[in-house]
Amino acid sequence: MTRFSGKSVIVTGSSNGIGRATAVLFSRYGAQVTITGRDSERLEVTKEKMLKAGALPQNINLVVANLTDPNGQDHIIQSTLKAFGKIDVLVNNAGANIFDGTLNTDQSIEIYQKTFQINFQSVVEMIKKTKEYLIKTKGEIVNVSSTVAGPQAMPMAPYYASAKAALNQYTRCVAIDLIQYGVRVNSVSPGIVESGFMSAQGFPDELQQKFLTFFASRKECIPAGVCGKPEDIAELIVFLSDRKRSSYIIGQSIVADGGSTLVAGMHAHDLHDMLGL
């Protein structure tokens, strides 16, 4: 008997990065897991990693679906119910910073609509559609937000930041609404993570590595001096999905960012050098 034996879990956006690492970790703990995304080949890679982690083939439900399409959402949910008979945990991980070449607040309304659809609206729709099943199991919901939600500004990605800020508030609202039925809702807010997030926006791998190396090497960006790994965030998601280990945490967004959000501008400078001490 392992930690999540007999538990049915949906992990959206599980074809790479944080979603893949989360699906693998749930499998290691004995869960029945629905993995889903739009790329069937990447989902097959996730499935292979889950099998290597000890998952039984019958405990993996692979669903190719577009999460922004209501029919895709229904397919994910109904396929999970058919495969496993219930839903115990919903991890709303899928998200994207949709890039059109504009790194300021001049981004188009079309980008705004697409960004909110995947990062916020799809979460609302998935929670509404799974609510009745989660109430039956007194289950858990974990939303994946981001430190870009604030309070610091993010003018190079205004719609993505705003969508994640909306997600944090929605998490709090729905947490209070659903806890009366025994369903816990929380979220995680990762900082910079080596997750392939930039590759999904169309950036080449070498540019992504340059970005990660730059931030990790500067204490005003990441005090810990290292970028996060998908597995770091997966551990936190699984912790929040475990009623025995996190039962008294309700409606919180747990930050995992290597200290990035604690840094003010003055921290980028050495006070001893500045004062000549």
Rank of each mutant, 00 (worst) to 15 (best):
S14G: 01
F26C: 13
G19M: 10
I35H: 11
S8T: 01
A21T: 04
V9L: 04
G37Y: 13
N16K: 15
A31F: 01
I10Y: 05
G13P: 00
A23V: 11
R3A: 09
G30S: 08
G17S: 06
G37R: 09
F26L: 14
I35Q: 12
R20N: 14
S8Y: 00
G17A: 06
L25Y: 05
T22V: 14
Q32G: 11
T12L: 03
T34G: 08
V24N: 02
R3N: 07
V33A: 09
N16R: 14
K7A: 02
K7G: 09
G30P: 06
T12A: 06
T22K: 10
V11P: 04
G6N: 14
A31Q: 00
I35A: 15
L25H: 08
I35P: 15
S5H: 11
L25K: 10
R20I: 12
S15I: 13
K7H: 01
G6C: 08
R38Y: 09
G6E: 13
R20D: 09
S14I: 00
L25I: 04
V11F: 08
I10T: 07
A23W: 11
I35E: 15
R38T: 13
G30W: 01
I35T: 12
T36C: 13
V11R: 11
S27E: 07
I18E: 02
G19C: 07
K7P: 11
S8G: 06
I35C: 15
K7F: 00
G19A: 10
R38P: 08
S15K: 11
Y29T: 12
S14H: 02
F4E: 05
V33T: 09
R3K: 12
R20K: 15
S14Y: 01
V11S: 09
T34N: 10
S8Q: 00
T2C: 03
L25G: 05
S15A: 15
I35K: 07
T2N: 15
G30C: 08
T36G: 04
T12E: 03
G17I: 00
I10V: 08
R3P: 11
I18D: 02
S27W: 08
Y29A: 07
T2I: 11
S14F: 02
